[in-house]
């Protein structure tokens, strides 16, 4: 008994240390990005596109990448929503009962969720070759859409699963069809949760680089049509860091700060909606 008491004390310390290390690593990462990036932050960084000689240390900013990332993430989030919502409603309203088929669907989605983004990128590339597309905003959006569909479906599925059966029964007993129950009751009931799922997916799309590497290309201009290539923040950071010029590397840090702030803002607002969702739950 005494041995266990000592063991428990030792492990208790170890557990707290482990938790500390995990939290510390997050704080360390954020602090490093802020510390390194802040000195290079300027209004130019967020308001201008790269000018001539930007990658040698001359003037400009990464507006091209910021806008590019927002276009890519925005486009793919909207597309993914159009595909995810029917799937989630199907799973939770039409196939509420447990069945081999719904288990199969969820398992397939879990596996899709686990596929690395670089594989989606490579697949997107084969699609591009197949359809004769060039690296473009459109190709990037399509690839990102595929990447975030499983993320979005999973997040929405989780909130829809919390709808009590009684609510469905109440709607049905008023003579509502399943479709009416899905659109008028289920969606309304989980709206904050759906918004959270959308934000999580948007965040993933903003931060992902490996899938757009092959497909969206990179450009110093802000794309004006779907067929033009588009820059993205992660790739801008990656490329700037790869240059030997200290000034440009500094800008990579500043770009990383911009990306981090963007992600934090998305993450915080999704927390806000989750909280609201929990509050609305009866």
């Amino acid at each position: 008994m005494k041995r266990y008491k000592i063991e428990e004390k030792v492990f208790n310390v170890l557990m707290k240390v482990a938790t500390g290390i995990i939290l510390l690593s997050l704080i360390w990462i954020l602090a490093t990005i802020v510390y390194k990036g802040l000195p290079y932050m300027s209004w130019d960084m967020v308001s201008r596109t790269p000018q001539g000689g930007f990658y040698m240390g001359k003037e400009g900013g990464v507006l091209n990448a910021i806008v590019g990332s927002l276009y890519l993430a925005g486009g793919s989030t909207i597309l993914a929503l159009f595909i995810s919502l029917p799937v989630v409603l199907y799973l939770n309203v039409y196939r509420r009962k447990k069945s081999a088929f719904s288990t199969f669907i969820r398992s397939s989605l879990d596996i899709l969720w686990g596929i690395p983004s670089i594989v989606y990128g490579a697949f997107g590339f084969t699609l591009m070759l197949l359809f004769g597309l060039k690296t473009s905003l459109l190709a990037g959006i399509i690839t990102l859409t595929l990447l975030i569909i499983p993320i979005m479906i999973r997040a929405m599925d989780e909130v829809m699963l919390t709808i009590p059966k009684g609510l469905f029964e109440a709607s049905y007993s008023l003579g509502a069809t399943r479709f009416e129950t899905a659109t008028k009751v289920a969606i309304r009931k989980t709206l904050p949760g759906i918004v959270t799922a959308i934000l999580i997916s948007f965040g993933r799309a903003v931060g992902d680089a490996a899938s757009v590497l092959f497909t969206a290309g990179f450009t110093d201009n802000i794309p004006t049509s779907l067929s033009q290539p588009a820059a993205s923040l992660p790739l801008a950071i990656f490329f700037q860091l790869g240059t030997p010029v200290p000034e440009v590397q500094g800008r990579a840090y500043a770009s990383a700060l911009i990306l981090t702030l963007l992600i934090l803002a998305i993450s915080l607002s999704s927390r806000y909606f989750t909280k609201r969702y929990l509050k609305n739950k009866i």
Binding site: G166, L167, G175, T177, K184, R188, I282
Partner: peptide, 21 residues
């Protein structure tokens, strides 16, 4: 048709489930 059947009956369940509206 299940919807027509259900329309003819009102249901009160064990605990109330107000619709989210």
């Amino acid at each position: 048709e299940v919807t027509d059947i259900r329309k003819r009956m009102g249901l009160l369940s064990q605990r109330p489930y107000p619709l989210p509206m």
